[in-house]
Design a protein around this nucleic acid. Structure first.
Length: 392
DNA sequence: AAGGAGGGCAACCGCATGTAC
DNA sequence: TGTACATGCGGTTGCCCTCCT
């Protein structure tokens, strides 16, 4: 029985023989793989296109790097996973020659165990609180590997965690071209993420995105996150930053984090606007800031009896989220980008100070970073709000 | 030496998304 | 606009090898 996509034909499954590999290689080098569904026929293989594609991508592609992962690669995986989570394809893009499958397998078979052995939740990279945490064999559901802390608890950890990570975290690998500058020249002492513990702020649960105000500092020399109160003018200005940008990004191709959607209507540059339901990224003369995003929660409606209370809280609270990136090159070009294809960094860097090519802007990174910095915390961020928590 | 358990890796499955018609 | 198909992705499974008893 083959895939449902190719149930019409009789296809072979299981391991590939050297002969099949040879046929596939010959076919693709000759014809390319414009349409995978036609590859089996062209190659004379009793496989479905999906299987051919997988075999090519994961094993036969000439640019694959075989062999075990280096410590540098391992560190990259951990760093990126901490930000992106199980987005293996995205993580693999930071490791030239590695496939998502390879990264995933390496994570499941090696890194995850290391983290667990050190008492870290491989999902959140935080210390696991529950002693009931247990690690099961990989054939069990991944969800059962860590403790049963639900997402809400994990989210709390993002905000109020002690600086527990034993792995150096360097966001530079994402803010900069990941084309192995990091791997080739790993920092001698990579900075550690330090999330300073503060008393939990009150969070209305159903506020679209609620940035903890003044309660965390992401202490990384390359990326400074600041939470800022609506009424606070305090911001972390940086020297040597470019002048005001006024360019509006045109489109986003990113995948929004589950449960949220970005609305583009307010994606403007250069002004700071606070909405009660969104976060704002701003650019001022001293700091480069992400495009203003209005992040609307796409979540089930709260129970009726809670709506009123939530509305009241929402009216009281708004947050301005400011991301200040102090990474500009000598020509004031924005370095906050991602070389997804592992291509020329210089090419990627060709951005003017007055125009911002949104295609180079790694919104996915930003999405995920936002998530990793506790922006989901609104779902269950404080004990006072626990009573309002949904099942999540 | 034999058999079971565990680990690593390749491949499959199902779903989401994109695209052409 | 709806549908079918292609592709991409993450989770899961199955096979094979190694280690341990």
């Amino acid at each position: 029985m083959g895939h449902h996509c190719c149930s019409k034909q009789k296809v072979k499954r299981g391991l590939w023989s050297p002969e099949e590999d040879e046929k596939l290689i010959r076919c693709i080098t000759t014809h390319g793989h414009g349409c995978w569904s036609s590859v089996p026929k062209l190659a004379g293989l009793q496989r479905c296109g999906k299987s051919c594609r997988l075999r090519w991508i994961n094993y036969l592609r000439p640019d694959l790097k075989r062999g075990s992962f280096s410590p540098q690669e391992e560190r990259v995986i951990i760093d990126v996973h901490r930000i992106l989570g199980n987005r293996w394809a995205q993580i693999a893009k930071h490791l030239p020659g590695r496939t998502d499958n390879e990264v995933k397998n390496f994570w499941n078979s090696c890194i995850k165990k290391k983290l667990i052995a050190q008492g870290l939740d491989p999902k959140t990279h935080n210390l696991m609180i529950s002693s009931s945490s247990s690690y099961h064999h990989h054939h069990q559901s991944t969800a059962s590997i860590v403790n049963n802390n639900n997402a809400c608890n994990n989210l709390n950890n993002h905000i109020y965690q002690q600086p527990t990570s034993v792995f150096p975290v360097n966001s530079q690998i994402i803010l900069r071209d990941p084309s192995m500058e990091y791997m080739m020249n790993p920092p001698a002492a990579a900075p550690y993420v330090t999330l300073l513990p503060h008393p939990p702020p009150p969070h209305p649960l159903h506020e679209a995105i609620s940035i903890p105000t003044n309660n965390f500092d992401y202490q990384n020399p390359n990326l400074v996150w600041t939470g800022k109160d609506q009424n606070s003018n305090a911001s972390m200005g940086l020297a040597n930053c470019p002048p005001l940008m006024e360019t509006k990004p045109t489109s986003y191709s990113s995948v929004n984090p589950p449960g949220f959607e970005f609305t583009e209507e307010n994606c403007l540059w250069g002004t700071t606007t606070t909405t009660s339901t969104g976060i704002s990224g701003t650019i001022d003369h001293q700091s480069f800031v992400l495009p203003r995003l209005q992040v609307a929660a796409v979540q089930p409606p709260p129970p009726p009896e809670e709506e009123q209370q939530i509305k009241q809280i929402q009216q009281k609270k708004a947050a301005v989220f400011e991301v200040v990136v102090d990474e500009f090159d000598e020509t004031n070009e924005v370095v906050l980008m991602n070389n997804k294809d592992g291509g020329s960094h210089d090419q990627e860097m060709e951005m003017s100070t007055t125009s911002f090519n949104s295609s180079n802007f790694d919104l996915e990174f930003m999405d995920s970073t936002i998530m990793s910095c506790g922006m989901y915390s609104n779902m269950n961020s404080s004990s006072s709000m626990d009573q309002l928590a949904w099942d999540c």
